Amino acid sequence: MRLVFAGTPEFSVPSLHACLASGAEVVAAYTQPDRPAGRGRKLGESPVKQAARAAGVAVEQPLTLRDKDARARLAAHAPDLMIVVAYGLILPKSVLAIPRLGCWNVHASLLPRWRGAAPIQRALLAGDLETGVDLMQMEAGLDTGPVLLEARTPIAPGDTGGSLHDRLAVLGAATLAEGLARVLRGETLAATAQREDGVEYAHKLDKAEARLDWNQSARQLERKVRAFDPWPVAEAVIDGERLRIWSAEAITGTGGEPGCIVATSREAIDIATGDGLLRVREVQRDGGRRIAVRDWLNARRKAPA
């Protein structure tokens, strides 16, 4: 079986490795063009490009797959199946029809909940207790295709966008590996149409969403802190200083106007919200690194008046 893989970020890499280990032939890896990155704005290769090159797989980086020449080049690879994992480019119908078995997508949610760009963070923001990955047969709609395989995982109270991302990347690769193994044995995977109810869209994250509003409940604010770790990172004004907030938890309690510090300790500060208190444990000052709250408090005490 000839596979073409399409993916870009770190989330895609375990699935690429699953393809390479499957016994199928990975004839090409598609990924987005190199982008300026870092303070020097030098062109940076995507994690998928780096992994593909390390494995000796040919890399393709078209600006779009709507171009006739790009489609012809994909067809020339004669893929039996195309695996798409967080690629970032739209696949038109003409591309979906090229592989003999169509295109599979590894999506980080339990469809139809959280179709779209940011399913991991949206699940955390909504307070979902469970999420997972779906191996989906792709069609023209946005994450609307029938589901081939599904794997579930609980969302733990301490999960962040980063921890859930890493767990779902591994779970997605394992689910894909199972699907490939079964097809290589000659099986046809049953395709289950998605439910018509329960559809939610996971819109792309906006940095402005990470600004905390102390009038919201402590529970809502805790979810934002966890969902936006490691990007774009929650931020708020605390005692007159804008800080990025890396670690916080909602606790019961009252006192003071929303945004006021109502208690301090060596380990945390408690801040009043619209409902309950937010206990903040780790922060980051402008231009600084991530630090424990006690270090921030010490620095403020030592600062000249």
Rank of each mutant, 00 (worst) to 15 (best):
R182C: 05
E178L: 03
L101G: 09
L111I: 12
S109R: 10
G127D: 05
R113A: 15
L129H: 15
T144Y: 03
G172A: 08
P112H: 14
A118D: 14
G172C: 03
A151G: 11
E178H: 01
A181W: 02
R167V: 08
E150T: 15
P119N: 14
D134F: 01
G132E: 09
L180N: 08
L135Q: 04
P154R: 07
L101K: 14
G145A: 09
A108L: 11
E150D: 01
G127E: 03
L124K: 04
G179A: 04
L142M: 15
A181D: 09
A169H: 03
A177Q: 10
A140Q: 13
A123V: 08
P157C: 07
L101V: 02
L101H: 13
G162I: 03
G102E: 05
L124I: 15
R152S: 12
T131K: 07
D143A: 05
A174C: 00
L129E: 15
L171K: 01
G132S: 12
E139Q: 14
I155C: 10
P157T: 07
L142Y: 10
R115V: 02
S109F: 12
Q137N: 07
I120C: 08
L135W: 04
D128H: 08
C103D: 06
W114C: 13
W114G: 09
W114Q: 11
A151N: 09
G116F: 11
L135S: 02
A117D: 06
D143V: 13
D159S: 09
L180H: 05
V170G: 00
G127P: 04
T144S: 15
Q121L: 00
L164I: 11
G127H: 05
L135P: 03
G127I: 03
G141M: 00
G161D: 04
G116N: 12
A108R: 10
C103L: 01
M138G: 03
G116H: 09
R182V: 09
D166P: 00
A169G: 08
G145L: 05
H165M: 11
D128P: 09
A123M: 11
A181P: 00
P157N: 03
R113W: 06
L101W: 13
Q137Y: 10
R182P: 00
I120R: 07
H107R: 12
